[in-house]
């Protein structure tokens, strides 16, 4: 990331010399930094509202209840976690938190799930099949409420910011299964 960052800025300055837009370049850079702060601040209200609502789901025990329901299907995806209830539970919580657009709240559950799987791992340096499958479906990013994206659209005055919910849901549900499929196939070919 460090080299990419340096490379992108230097190449812009270099290219701007050739196209004669060096003055414009700095103006645009300064404008963009101002705009970045405006965007971040415009997110506070909407994200606050959503995090408040979801906190109710967390504290009332609704989220735990939902993850109890999805624990059963999880066993189909991760057959070797039968004797590892802690991993199952944390995977379920991770998926439910991600689905509600709470990437920050999901990460601790994900790490706890990894730790629980690591305990039963014989070779501590090598990822197990379940770990790889979990990582793959996690990066597929199953979403019911893409909260931050809706917040950005709404803060910019979109007519209908929630209309992206269903398309996003369909796309991520499909990539969820695709990730699972690839993980299951590929696990045979990687030592």
């Amino acid at each position: 990331m460090n080299y990419i960052f340096i490379f992108l800025i230097l190449i812009s300055i270099f290219a701007a010399f050739f196209t004669g837009s060096i003055e414009n370049l700095i103006n645009e850079a300064l404008n963009a930094s101002k705009k970045a702060v405006e965007i971040a601040f415009s997110l506070i209200g909407i994200m606050g509202f959503w995090l408040g609502i979801v906190n109710i789901a967390k504290k009332s025990g609704l989220m735990n209840k939902i993850s109890k329901i999805i624990e059963k299907p999880i066993l189909y995806i991760f057959p070797d976690l039968k004797s590892n209830p802690e991993a199952q539970n944390n995977i379920a919580l991770n998926i439910s938190a991600n689905a509600l657009g709470l990437a920050n709240a999901a990460t601790p559950f994900g790490i706890k799930a990894m730790e629980a799987m690591q305990e039963q791992n014989k070779n501590k340096k090598r990822a197990t099949n379940s770990m790889c499958t979990f990582l793959a479906i996690n990066t597929a990013g199953f979403q019911i409420v893409p909260a931050v994206v809706i917040a950005i659209l709404s803060a910019n005055g979109a007519k209908n910011p929630t209309e992206i919910i269903l398309p996003t849901f369909i796309v991520t549900l499909c990539s969820f299964f695709v990730a699972m499929f690839f993980a299951k196939i590929l696990e045979r070919f990687f030592e």
Binding site: K125, C132, L135, G141, Q143, P146, T168, F182, E187, F190
Partner: peptide, 30 residues
């Protein structure tokens, strides 16, 4: 944006947290 979870970041955080060095097929599947 809504349907992306950053594969490389998640891999380094989750595997890094438990000291896994051999990622096997996790990145490729992701």
């Amino acid at each position: 944006t809504g349907s992306s979870e950053t594969t490389f970041y998640v891999a380094s955080v989750y595997f890094g947290a438990v000291g896994i060095k051999k990622f096997r097929h996790a990145l490729l599947a992701g």
